[in-house]
């Protein structure tokens, strides 16, 4: 399987924060979710991929060096950034006119259709849009030139569940239309990823914790709920982190079948991505 993005040892230091040796791939035909707390390094990773910030390490997009072939590569990328877009004193019509001269493959018809589909007015100033409408406009702008790769930074934050679902549906359709496309989506709303992502990359305090297929994560990981005695029987190699609750221990394992067989423990819950993330952040070892 070819990769649309390959990151190798990407590092970046700011005052008080270091992103260290981030390496992962975004294969064609897949949606990769980038998760982590606020300030974990998700946006810095995305900025490094897009060459917005000057990071160390290697970023290859569509098999080309992201710095050397920057303009060529970016013609095939659609971008949604959480806190950044064109000025609020423009209209959706202005955005169309600007983007016609920005992207070689800008598809005006597709953009107008997306505006209709999202119920977005063409002549209203963006400053008068709701946050959901703004995000829909950003997404319409990102996909109207039929990019091979979508990079989305927190596209669903601050949106109500209806709009969030609409956006997730649209992303699903986008990836189904062409198997060479892929999406890198950063979010702290991990429940969104359970339904649409193929891989999860977890970053914590600037370091990569794991890069795993979503299925593997949801099927193999488990939360063992056990007594102190049962917990003391567990080999440290068999679990990742634990939390001491009032009446029991909760233990995160990456191989629940082994735990069942080896320790004869039957109470193992299926965790959500959020549970897993919380264990890694708050759990003890």
């Amino acid at each position: 399987m070819e990769n649309n993005i390959e990151l190798k040892n990407v590092s970046k230091s700011y005052k008080g924060f270091t992103l260290k040796n981030i390496s992962f791939n975004v294969p064609q035909g897949s949606i990769v979710g980038l998760i982590g707390e606020n300030g974990a390094g998700k946006t810095t990773t995305i900025k490094s991929i897009l060459n917005i910030t000057n990071a160390e390490g290697s970023v290859t997009i569509f098999g080309k060096d992201s710095k050397k072939a920057e303009k060529e590569i970016k013609n095939d990328i659609g971008v949604v950034l959480d806190d950044s877009f064109l000025s609020d004193y423009l209209t959706a019509k202005h955005v169309n006119s600007i983007m016609k001269d920005v992207y070689k493959t800008w598809n005006e018809g597709k953009y107008i259709n997306l505006l209709k589909q999202f119920d977005l007015p063409k002549d209203k100033l963006i400053k008068d849009f709701s946050s959901g409408m703004k995000m829909k406009l950003k997404i319409a702008t990102a996909i109207a030139h039929n990019p091979k790769l979508l990079i989305l930074d927190e596209p669903t934050s601050g949106l109500d569940p209806v709009v969030r679902n609409e956006i997730l549906d649209m992303l699903r359709k986008y990836i189904e239309e062409d198997e060479t496309r892929s999406i890198l989506l950063s979010t702290h709303i991990t429940s969104d990823l359970e339904h649409i992502s193929d891989y999860i990359v977890f970053i914590e305090k600037g370091k990569m914790v794991f890069d795993l297929p979503t299925n593997e994560l949801l099927e193999n990981y488990g939360i063992i709920k056990c007594s102190k005695e049962d917990f003391s029987r567990l080999d440290e190699k068999d679990y990742i982190k634990y939390k001491k609750e009032k009446y029991q221990y909760e233990v995160l394992t990456s191989n629940k079948d082994t735990i069942r067989r080896k320790y004869n423990i039957t109470t193992i819950d299926k965790p959500s991505i959020e549970d897993i993330m919380l264990f890694y952040i708050k759990g003890e070892r």
């Binding site: 897009l50 060459n51 060529e72 970016k74 950034l81 950044s84 609020d88």
Partner: peptide
């Protein structure tokens, strides 16, 4: 206008 909308980051993500 660019500073208020933080447009520079977005513009740098475009093919330029």
């Amino acid at each position: 206008y660019d500073e208020i909308a933080k447009s520079n980051k977005y513009i740098l993500a475009l093919p330029t």
